[in-house]
Amino acid sequence: MPYIAARDLTIEFPLYHLGARSLKKRILAHSPLRLRQDEANRVVVSALRGLDFRIGAGERVALIGRNGAGKTTLLRTLAGVYEPVGGRLEVQGLIGSLIDPAAGMDQESTGRENITLRGLFRGLDEAESAVMAEEIGAFAGLGEFLDVPVRSYSAGMQVRLSFAIATVMAPEVLLMDEWFLAGDAEFREKARVKLTKLVKDADILVLATHDLGVVREWCTRVIRLDAGRIVEDGPVEAVLAAA
């Protein structure tokens, strides 16, 4: 059964290119909260500090918190991009991440080429990707623009293509940033149907969002992050009522 288990999970970003010693001192003196010096005398930002949680199959978790609270960093860590500096993380199950819409998108290539490329990123071969291209093109409503470089797309078309490419999957653990809830009005309804299906089919959903309406509609549990720590964790109504 898919699950996510984190014990004392810690992520720190070293600030490597800070330069002069005096500048370093000044920064450390003025913001003692999340910037600190590690053993090797580097200035590090504590992005996630000692998180403990376990998410079981069937749970729909919303990550909420102010900008910079660590929501996206936590999603990327769960996706395997950042290796924890301290603690332990276990993720069982096929991970699908909807974090950055444009990841791996090449502006100069056509929509179809981008779909093939994304297929390769996922480990498909060209033939499988070609089949996928028609499906994605139809869903994104690109029509003849499928064979035009992405650079010449309107912003809305780019969003639609990214969304369509990113959501062709059936993951067990779905990691999603709130970007995917945005989109133009015409496309939104179609997107919503697709996302709802994706969310329903996944065993675990972890969603970073500010939109409390979405939290109430989709989620069963809320984790509130503040300055890299978990400050609240519980059923939706309990956490939202306290706020």
Binding site: P2, T10, G80, E83, P84, V85, G86, G87, R88, L89, E90, V91, Q92, G93, L94, I95, R122, G123, L124, E128, V168, M169, A170, P171, E172
Partner: peptide, 20 residues
Amino acid sequence: MLDQIEAAAPLYIADAAAPR
């Protein structure tokens, strides 16, 4: 279609104490 390829290694473990 997409799951089959990556389904082989579904457990991801990162442990700072035993980095392997």
